[in-house]
Amino acid sequence: MPAVPEAEFSNSPIHLARKRLLIVDDNLTNRKIISLQAESWKMQAYAAKSDKEALDQLAQGTQFDIDILDMQMPEMDGLETTRRISQEWRVGFRPHIIAITANAMQGDREVCLAAGMDNYISKPIQLQELAEVLSKCPPQRSSEFTSIVKLGKVICKELQPSPNILQSEQNQTLKSAKIDPKMLQSLWDIVRGDHVAFAELIECYLIETRRLVQDISTAITNEDALTIWKTAHQLKSSSASVGAIALVQLCKLLEAQGRSSKLENSLELFSQLYQEYEQVKTALQKELAKEAP
């Protein structure tokens, strides 16, 4: 598959440079992906693992130009967080708020806007869509910002042409694990061909996925439907970002079982999920080995 031309991603609005972006998502892989892209546009990317953490930063006087909020968070959802921000800070003095969710359904955008959000995008994140949404943010305000410690910041690299990493002879490994080559190519476009950054991103996914799979296993043993629901949702979201399409579908099934508390065949389903997880892990590790400098 030919590499996406660099020009396609060089049209990010100039006024995004030096903007302060707060990424609020409990999923480490998603925070890393958005941070990498934001840094490539010369934005200042910060991260919060929960809505409470984000609200605490704002309450301490930390100012951000843009907040990207995950709609589904463990402690508080994005809608409630937006309502609280809207109550505390009037328009023009609060961040431009963008909702992001893995469950894009009809009417979601209207619900987000009614709660006070300014825009809405769905996962897995597409570069062009993210650029278009960010382009609608107002110009940077001329105000001083208080300093805070950056969380999970990724160092911005010099832009490089994106390599064609998905040669036809490599596709068989990806196909066996049902990984979408276009999504992996999208990740390469985000890091602009930086091998170190790409490896960091994939390792981030593999580390988080190992923990989530173990948590699902424990939850099934304990018949903990709520944890199965929430953890399968997290795994679905991050797996979609790397193109693990079969793993995503299995996560959807487990997520639905957890939501409905109907766990009759959850062990059998988890066995399929674990096998697919192992195939995805092997395929991604092979990709890293092939692309090592």
Rank of each mutant, 00 (worst) to 15 (best):
Q214F: 14
M117W: 05
M73C: 03
D65C: 06
Q87V: 12
S266A: 13
D56G: 11
Q172L: 13
M105P: 00
R192L: 06
S238N: 04
C137P: 10
L212N: 02
A45N: 02
L16D: 06
P181K: 07
L21Y: 03
E53Y: 00
E53S: 09
A256Q: 15
G116P: 03
M117N: 06
I228Y: 03
Q257D: 11
A289G: 08
V280A: 01
M73Y: 04
A114M: 13
N171Q: 13
A102V: 11
S50F: 05
L288M: 13
L21T: 02
S10A: 14
D118A: 02
K153C: 01
V111P: 07
A289Y: 05
A232I: 02
Q272N: 10
C137L: 11
V154R: 08
R192A: 05
L267Y: 06
V154Y: 04
G78C: 01
I190V: 13
S162D: 10
T146G: 07
K286E: 12
T146Q: 12
K123S: 02
E255I: 00
Y277A: 04
Q60K: 13
L226M: 13
V111F: 11
D118Y: 05
Q234Y: 06
K290D: 12
I121L: 08
C156D: 08
E88N: 15
K290F: 11
Q37T: 11
G116E: 04
V24A: 00
K19W: 03
T218A: 10
V242A: 03
L113W: 03
I33E: 01
E208K: 09
V24F: 06
L263S: 00
Q234N: 14
G243I: 10
Q87S: 13
L206F: 01
R192H: 10
A104M: 13
L284Y: 07
F270M: 04
I100Q: 04
E264P: 11
K262D: 14
S241C: 09
L151K: 15
M183G: 02
L273Y: 02
R31C: 00
K136H: 11
V196E: 12
Q257Y: 04
L113P: 08
L235A: 05
K175T: 15
G193P: 07
Q63H: 12
S135R: 11
P5G: 09
Q44N: 15
S12V: 15
L21N: 03
L247W: 07
R83Q: 09
L247H: 07
R83S: 07
S168H: 12
E255Q: 05
P163D: 04
C156W: 05
L58V: 07
A177D: 00
K290V: 13
A47S: 15
S261H: 09
D70M: 06
P161N: 08
L206P: 01
A48K: 07
G107N: 07
E276R: 00
A232M: 07
I220V: 10
R84L: 15
P95A: 03
L159C: 11
A244W: 05
E287A: 06
A283N: 01
L201V: 04
S12W: 08
S271P: 05
T218V: 14
A232F: 01
L127F: 05
F9P: 00
D51T: 15
P124C: 09
V196K: 14
I190Y: 01
S40D: 00
W229V: 06
